[in-house]
Lab assay of single mutants.
Amino acid sequence: MGFKLLSKLLVYLTASIMAIASPLAFSVDSSGEYPTVSEIPVGEVRLYQIADGVWSHIATQSFDGAVYPSNGLIVRDGDELLLIDTAWGAKNTAALLAEIEKQIGLPVTRAVSTHFHDDRVGGVDVLRAAGVATYASPSTRRLAEVEGNEIPTHSLEGLSSSGDAVRFGPVELFYPGAAHSTDNLIVYVPSASVLYGGCAIYELSRTSAGNVADADLAEWPTSIERIQQHYPEAQFVIPGHGLPGGLDLLKHTTNVVKAHTNRSVVE
C-alpha cells in the first residue's frame, strides 16, 4: 500500500471513529477524501466538511520552486461564519470567499490569524475590503508590521502568557507558548472536538522541520505538551499544512522538532 493511500485511509478511519463516538456532533463529509496538494491548482481553494458547521479550507501556493498546501478553518456561528487564517495570499483568499459563498452561503463576518507569517495573514486586506472584521493577538499584529505583512485590524486580548485561553464565538483560542513562531495560536472547536494546530503542528508525513527561522526550538516541545494537557479530548487535529489526523500529530511534531534540534547540535 502506497504512503499517500495509507495517509488518506488514516484520515478516513479517524473521521469514521469520530462519527461513531459522537453521532450528534459529527456529520463528516462523505463526498470524498481530504484534498491534497496535487489536486488543488494554485489560485483555487477546496472546502472539506469535518463536522456539522465545521470545515477546513485548503489552498496551495508556490514557494521556492515548489507547491505547498495550506489549511485553515471555518466555523459556523449562528447565521454567520468565523474564518481562521487566510488562504495564503490575496488571490487565494478572494477564491476562498467565493467558494464559501458557493458552498455554504453564509457571510464571513470575523477572521482570526493564528500567527504573523504570510500563509496566515496574506489576504487580510481582501477580507477587510469584503467587510470582514480581522483579528490577531497584539504580538501577531506587531510582528506582521515588522515583517511588512498585512496586519489584522483588531487585537485579541488575554493571550499574552503561555497557557492563556479565551473564548471567541464558537471557538476557544489558546496560546501554548512559542513553537513554530513566538505568537502562534491554537484554535479548538469544543462542539466538535476539532483542534486546529496551525503551523505549530505537523502532518504525519512530514519528517523535516522546514521553516524554523522564527521558531523557538527549545520551547516548542513544552508548548505541545500544554496543548495535549489542555485538549486531551480532541479527536480531529488539523495541521497548518497537509493531512489531518488525531492527537498523534502532536507527538510526531515533537519528535521531528527534537530530531532537528539534535542534528543542529551535532553539526
Rank of each mutant, 00 (worst) to 15 (best):
M1S: 03
F3N: 14
K4A: 05
L5Q: 15
L9C: 15
L10K: 13
L10T: 15
V11S: 10
Y12V: 10
T14K: 08
T14S: 10
A15G: 09
A15H: 10
I17N: 09
M18N: 15
A19M: 15
A21R: 11
S22Y: 10
P23L: 12
P23I: 09
S27V: 12
V28F: 06
D29Q: 11
G32M: 08
Y34R: 08
Y34E: 08
T36R: 13
T36L: 10
V37N: 15
V37H: 15
S38E: 11
I40T: 11
V42H: 10
R46A: 09
Q49N: 12
A51H: 07
D52N: 12
W55M: 01
S56T: 15
H57Y: 07
H57E: 00
Q61M: 14
S62F: 06
S62M: 08
F63E: 12
G65H: 10
I74E: 02
I74W: 02
E80N: 09
L81S: 03
L83V: 09
D85P: 00
A87L: 03
A90Q: 11
K91E: 15
K91S: 15
K91Y: 09
N92Y: 04
N92M: 03
A95D: 07
A95P: 03
A95K: 13
L96M: 08
L96G: 02
L97N: 01
A98R: 14
I100C: 01
I100L: 07
E101S: 13
K102A: 13
G105M: 10
P107E: 10
P107F: 06
V108R: 03
T109S: 13
A111I: 04
H117M: 00
H117D: 02
V121T: 05
G122S: 09
G123N: 05
V124N: 04
D125I: 05
V126M: 06
L127I: 03
R128L: 09
R128A: 13
A129Y: 15
G131H: 08
V132W: 01
A133N: 10
Y135Q: 01
A136G: 09
A136I: 03
S139A: 14
S139E: 13
T140A: 06
T140Y: 05
R141D: 02
R142D: 11
E147C: 07
G148V: 04
E150R: 02
P152F: 02
P152C: 01
T153L: 11
S160V: 12
G163T: 06
G163L: 04
D164H: 09
A165E: 11
F168C: 05
G169V: 04
L173N: 05
Y175F: 11
Y175E: 00
A178M: 07
S181C: 03
S181F: 00
D183E: 03
N184D: 06
N184Q: 00
L185Q: 02
V187C: 02
A192V: 12
V194T: 06
L195V: 05
Y196G: 00
Y196K: 00
A200G: 03
I201Q: 02
R206F: 08
D214P: 06
D214E: 07
W220L: 03
W220R: 04
P221T: 11
P221V: 11
I224V: 11
E225G: 11
I227A: 05
Q228T: 15
Q228C: 07
Q228P: 07
Y231S: 02
E233R: 13
E233H: 13
F236A: 10
V237F: 04
P239M: 00
G240L: 04
G240M: 04
H241K: 00
H241V: 00
L243C: 08
G245I: 02
L247I: 14
D248R: 07
L249T: 02
L250V: 04
H252W: 04
T254E: 13
N255R: 12
V256P: 00
V257T: 05
K258Q: 14
A259F: 08
H260I: 09
N262E: 13
R263Y: 10
S264G: 13
E267P: 13
E267N: 10
